[in-house]
């Protein structure tokens, strides 16, 4: 009896800690006052202003575009890595391959961002491309560090499932390509979707790497938000938080739905 009380208390306090700040953020987004912290009355004013703020809307579209594209590329390459690591025995310089595919997971974003920026500058000096940084360079950087996250999900999934199914299909006369497209990929599809969603949110959320590799005409949403709240508070950002939290929660639930589906 006593231990179950402790248990409920711990869980309650933990969840309270996780959700309290988010609730505060959403609560103040309905504040009429321009000074975020001084409550004046309920209003949807800042939602209205947010939707009329062209800078934020534009940044949002750019972010979604980059996130969708880089998630797609990262998923294709990540699936290839996950598949190679589990199913293909002969990989030239395998340790190097593992190094390349796992280091982005533990490399601080700041170092990654710096290395990408210096790479693009050096590349431009050598071959004259990319002449200026922008959406393309952010896209390349995001693909690079999202690959590892997709790869690890796919790798885990492939390690779990029974190789005999693939071998049985081979015995029944399927060739290699057919096994991959008819057996392996459909089985790991939920993980592929989960990987894509993870890559999408990572890209959408990234501020540091994007700050390094951005250029004219490529202000992503986190860059704009950071410039607004670095030194102070902004009621529009509160409204944005509420909307973004809500949509990300929906993506999160999708992710869980797929993740759970593949576990069964």
């Amino acid at each position: 009896m006593k231990s179950s009380l402790i248990k409920s208390t711990v869980i309650f306090l933990g969840l309270f800690f996780l959700y309290f700040p988010i609730l505060v953020l959403i609560f103040y987004s309905f504040n009429e006052n321009k000074r975020v912290m001084v409550w004046k009355g309920f209003s949807l004013r800042w939602y209205n202003e947010l939707l009329n703020n062209e800078q934020i809307i534009e940044a949002f579209i750019i972010s979604i575009k980059i996130a969708a594209l880089s998630a797609t590329f990262a998923t294709i390459l990540g699936v290839m890595i996950g598949y190679s690591l589990v199913r293909i025995r002969k990989i030239p310089f395998k340790s190097f391959y593992i190094f390349l595919s796992s280091t982005p997971l533990v490399l601080p974003e700041l170092i990654l961002g710096l290395s990408m920026l210096l790479f693009f500058i050096s590349l431009n000096n050598v071959i004259g491309f990319p002449s200026s940084r922008g959406q393309l360079t952010i896209f390349i950087s995001h693909v690079t560090f999202c690959i590892a996250f997709v790869a690890i999900i796919i790798q885990a999934r492939l390690t779990d499932f029974n190789k005999n199914i693939e071998e049985a299909a081979m015995d029944l006369g399927y060739n290699y390509t057919k096994v991959l497209y008819k057996i392996t990929l459909p089985i790991i599809l939920p993980s592929i979707i989960a990987g894509w969603l993870l890559a999408f949110t990572i890209s959408l959320d990234d501020l540091v790497v994007a700050s390094f590799t951005t250029g004219p005409g490529a202000n992503t949403l986190p860059i704009v938000v950071f410039s607004k709240v670095r030194l102070g508070l902004s009621p529009e950002v509160n409204a944005l938080s509420a909307i973004l939290m809500f949509s990300l929660i929906i993506i999160g639930l999708f992710y869980f739905y797929f993740n759970k589906k593949f576990k069964h």
Binding site: G14, I22, P222, V225, V229, L233, V237
Partner: peptide, 22 residues
Amino acid sequence: LVLVVIPFWSSFLLRVYAWKII
């Protein structure tokens, strides 16, 4: 588990911003 992960899915920058308000 879902409840623990949901905040993690939401924007990092905005979760830091929330503490600035608090």
